[in-house]
Design a protein around this nucleic acid. Structure first.
Lengths: 215, 215
DNA sequence: AATCGTTTCATACGCTTGTTTGAATTGATT
DNA sequence: AATCAATTCAAACAAGCGTATGAAACGATT
């Protein structure tokens, strides 16, 4: 019983790594079971089949995301610009950092771009949650813009963040390994926030710095 | 002879579609040959094996890109801001529009994010070319910034563009099918250019419009 | 100590994949 | 009309995949 739960857990761990690395079809049950030190038939016994194993993993990823890197929640009166900075920072931590095993975000991404019917709903509201929060901040920040314009602005911000997850190999190739190594969540988040707030015509933290700032 | 060249060509066409849709491993030779109306063994006969067929396709994509949507070239004295607008517009056309069969960009992308050793070099300088051009424009636009900062700015711009290729399913899901249908290369390019130029502190076309602009 | 439900294991089945092979077909050249 | 290289074809191959099965091993309960 205790042992059973144990191999179940080991399989989930191994599957997480495998699915994140190679995707659903490319990852093989044989590889997963070998990494988990379990028998080939273990997946069938504990989960039924490959797809249900994957489904359970997605649900787990969804749950863990919320616990480990919750979306920020601000006290009333927080300036909208500060909220945007917080939002971007949280997003970047989720994108590039490794506080929890990073297979979670990796799988959510893969699931979004190559959807599996089984868990569309789950992944959908994961992204919708983020987007709605971002929109509410933007509405506060530039109340005069139309909804359509706000959507575009939202994508401009998300696009900047996503780039460092989705195109990381390209980034490293273009700036070199050293500079790439310095791209921490904090550094990137600050740049993206500065860039975006300026684009929105919101003055920087100390009046309007920049020009001449970095060297 | 003439017939042989013909099936060779048909296979290349079919393979382009298949690889772009499903990627290298997921696309099957059987499917490709069926679409091409050729025998299963035709790939082996004309190309040797699956990988060499893929390689030939990448080379072709690389060549065609240059011909069909060349990077813009400006007369001396063109304002840097105008160059940036042109660069972004060209990029967006390559990203979302379908002037040539769009498998070309699709395959280049896939090759970048899931590299195949065989054609790293080819794909690398495809991206490097773009990036260097963008950097040269930015240097002209904000000459006071350091190279590191320029890299970040470059990624902010590319990230915004890439988003509409890489995350298009998410985009459609978040704004609905109607609004998504209105996202032409022109519309998106103009937004991204406005957004980015403002972020760089470069005044818009007519002084400093925006706020109250779109409705 | 014997029993019984739970979990592991080795093995095999059916299917799809990329690749190979040797015969059939074709179309131009002699 | 005969010949011959180039091309097509049906069929088969080994290898890998997800899944299914029935026997073995295990642990708690009687």
């Amino acid at each position: 019983m205790a042992i059973a739960e144990d191999t179940r857990e080991r399989i989930l761990e191994a599957a997480a790594a495998a699915f994140a690395e190679k995707g659903f079809e490319a990852a093989t049950i044989r590889d997963i079971c070998q990494r988990a030190g379990a028998n080939l038939a273990a997946v069938n016994y504990h989960f039924g089949d490959k797809e249900q194993l994957y489904l359970e993993l997605i649900q787990r990823a969804h749950r863990l995301r919320e616990q480990q890197v919750p979306l920020p929640h601000w006290p009333a009166g927080t300036p909208a610009a500060e909220k945007l900075r917080g939002f971007i920072r949280t997003t970047m931590v989720r994108m590039v950092e490794d506080p929890a095993p990073q297979w979670q975000m990796q799988i959510m991404m893969r699931e979004m771009f190559h959807p599996t019917k089984t868990c569309q709903a789950l992944v959908q509201d994961f992204f919708r949650q983020h987007f709605e929060l971002l929109l509410s901040i933007l509405r506060e920040l530039v109340p005069l813009e139309s909804d359509e314009k706000l959507h575009l602005i939202g994508f401009s911000i998300i696009g900047q963040c996503l780039h460092y997850r989705v195109a990381r190999p390209v980034v490293e190739l273009l700036v070199g390994a050293d500079e790439n190594a310095g791209y921490t969540a904090d550094l990137l988040a600050e740049h993206i926030a500065d860039f975006s707030l300026r684009a929105l015509g919101v003055p920087g933290r100390n009046g309007q710095p920049r020009q001449e700032a970095a060297r």
